[in-house]
Amino acid sequence: MVTNTLVIGASIAGLAVAGSLQKQEIEYTIIEKDNCIAAPWHRHYDRLHLHTSKRFSHLPYKKFNSNVPRYPAKEQVIEYLNDYRSAFDIKPLFNMEAFSVKRVNDVWVTRTNKESIESKFVVMATGAFGEPKTAFFKGMETFPGRIMHSSEYKTGADFKGQKVLVVGFGNSACEIAMDLYEQGAKPVMSARSPVNIVPRDVLGIPILEISILLNPLQPAVADLISKPLMKLLIGDISRLGLQPMPYGPLRQIQKDHKAPVLDIGTVKHIRQGNIQVEGGIDHITGNIVYFKNGRVAKFDAIIAAVGYRSVDEKIVSVEKERFDDLLVSVDHQNYFGKDGLYFCGYWISPTGQIREIAQDAKKIAKDIAKKNN
């Protein structure tokens, strides 16, 4: 198969790129290893909502409907993405997985499970969260209950009456802990590392809008300005058994490439005693978990919210010295468009991941259009 532009992945980033290429009247092919668009969203837990406002979380050239709430639920996001696909007549080739992307002479050759595809341009849109990280805890093989990655979690109803350990303190971990409590389970969170917590809304205004206003400033300066407000709204998290980060949330994004926790109610539940917080896990013996803070507790199940890794390093073959800057967005890399290779959806942005994807998708399409002329 020969195409002008190959887009790999048909979730949020891939759809955003496809829609943007359509606007530029660029011929393209989009492939997806699963049998539907936005496959990760179909697999996510039932309670999931966007943690960022719909106003800044839509794809290029099409907003959410006005009847959708500010923070859309999982099914509303899926419905929106299906509507987006229809509006732009995006036709992914499903069940087609890319195994390698290599530069051969003046074209990119992508080997898939079905056929090879030659293209002038390639856009990697598999994202920074393509593959669940493997959880490992010393002695976990002796645990008699179920240990699952958060990607396998669906609903707290499956754990009603059980004492469940949620490992991690990211956005998914916090929402899962809330869901467990609301569904009648007894959640405990193992917070292994220091964290930054920011409110999702400030006086009814999404924190994302404040981040956008502060974005022109250096992260350290912006954090210094917002620190008194964050302390007033969140309080001293060390009293909750959590370790505060030595630097602020915007510096965290810049330095660690990880988003802070957007609090949607977890802090309140911790203060009320509905969710307990422990330190990192030292080891497990049977159904007993020994924490590094010296505490010990029995559990019926463990949910490992230990994050994801990108899969693109397994796929793209370029010289190692040219690979160091790939996993960031077009505004923050030196690799943008070299030899016709682009990446969309890999930069953790202080102004919202989907907003960043939408901006990058339009820039990528415009750059391809310029190089085609």
Score class of each variant (00 low, 15 high):
V104G: 00
N105P: 02
K138H: 10
G130F: 08
T126N: 05
V101Q: 04
A135E: 09
K114T: 14
T134P: 04
T110Q: 02
N113V: 02
K102W: 00
V123M: 12
F137L: 01
S116E: 14
G127R: 02
T112M: 12
E115N: 14
T126W: 03
E131W: 06
A125H: 11
V104Q: 06
A125E: 07
G130N: 06
N105W: 07
S119F: 02
V109M: 08
G130C: 04
N105D: 12
K133W: 00
I117S: 09
K138W: 06
V101H: 01
G139Y: 14
V123P: 15
N113F: 06
R111M: 07
W108I: 10
K102E: 09
T134W: 00
N113K: 03
T112C: 13
T110R: 10
T134I: 13
T110K: 08
P132Q: 07
A128Q: 08
T142P: 11
S119R: 03
T142C: 06
W108R: 09
D106S: 09
W108C: 07
E118N: 11
E115T: 15
G139T: 15
I117D: 04
A128V: 14
V104R: 05
A128E: 05
V122M: 11
V101M: 12
F137Y: 15
E118A: 13
R103I: 00
S116H: 04
W108M: 10
K102T: 04
E141W: 01
K102H: 01
T126E: 05
T110F: 05
R111I: 07
T110V: 15
A125F: 12
G130S: 12
M140A: 09
G130R: 05
K138E: 15
G139L: 13
K138S: 09
N113E: 03
E131Y: 08
P132F: 06
S119T: 07
T126S: 03
K120S: 15
V107Y: 12
K133E: 04
V101N: 09
T110Y: 05
S119L: 05
E118Y: 06
E141S: 13
G130P: 03
I117E: 03
V122K: 07
P132S: 09
V104M: 01
T142L: 06
T110G: 06
G127P: 00
T142I: 12
E118R: 10
N105M: 10
N105G: 02
G130Q: 06
K138P: 00
T142H: 11
V122A: 06
V123S: 13
G127F: 03
T134Y: 01
F121P: 04
V109W: 01
G130V: 05
A125N: 14
D106Q: 08
T142W: 08
